[in-house]
Design a protein around this nucleic acid. Structure first.
Lengths: 118, 118
DNA sequence: CTATATATATCGGTGCACGACATATATTGT
DNA sequence: ACAATATATGTCGTGCACCGATATATATAG
């Protein structure tokens, strides 16, 4: 269990599972929607990541079903995974806030009118 | 210029450079401080990343100096890098917000007392 | 005089993501 | 009737960022 920071595809996967269980192909579509079409997760990334997350115990196979003659595996976020996602989210919020603070505090900004806020 | 999402060490590097120029070893300390000691950037990661970011034109070598008999290279964030950091920050803020929204909207939450907030 | 802090740099290994390919069924278009 | 696209899961080789170890050198602290 390397507590290395999650890469973005993995983060998006856990995010897409945070509200309710979904199957692989559904995750691709959901992530496409979440990111407004910017991120198109590849099947190579997806199924590899799902296997890894299963092995790490962050997700589980909720059930297998057949819809319209096509087999599906439905994955769900485990409590462990929920914890990891919550922690990662807090971490990233802090980093983002820090980045924004520093960009605003940029030491050599263009002409600063007197009385301007930091 | 592969517009692939930044990994966290790289994001932290740009963040640490966002307010003012710093040298390599100073970046390690700064990142240690930003993350409250959680992230200890390795020199292998650092100098590799600095080379890469220089080549991508996201940062530049501001100056070289000698302090207490030790040589330093001071790196600064370029305008391009500032733009990338700003974009990445916006992106991540959206993902974090989405993750939090979904965790709150979790479909099978533990016993919810009537009238309880999400 | 040794250990630690400051400072830069290289190198081999690992792990995650990417892109291409493979397979199969259902639906839509011509 | 046939082709193309959407749905659905999966494998495999490659690339690249990060990690851990190692190397080098000067200054300061014990």
């Amino acid at each position: 269990m390397s507590d290395r920071p999650l890469q973005e595809p993995t983060l998006l996967l856990l995010t897409a599972l945070a509200d309710e269980p979904r199957h692989g192909y559904g995750l691709i579509q959901e992530i496409d929607a979440i990111s407004n079409g910017r991120v198109r997760m590849r099947t190579g990334t997806l199924y590899g990541a799902l296997d890894r997350l299963l092995q790490q115990g962050l997700i589980r196979v909720e059930r297998e079903e057949v819809v319209d003659g096509r087999a599906r595996k439905v994955y769900a976020l485990d409590e462990t995974g929920r914890g990891v996602l919550a922690a990662e989210t807090r971490r990233l919020r802090a980093v983002v806030a820090e980045a924004e603070r520093r960009m605003a505090a940029h030491s050599t900004p263009a002409v600063r009118p007197k009385g301007a806020l930091a």
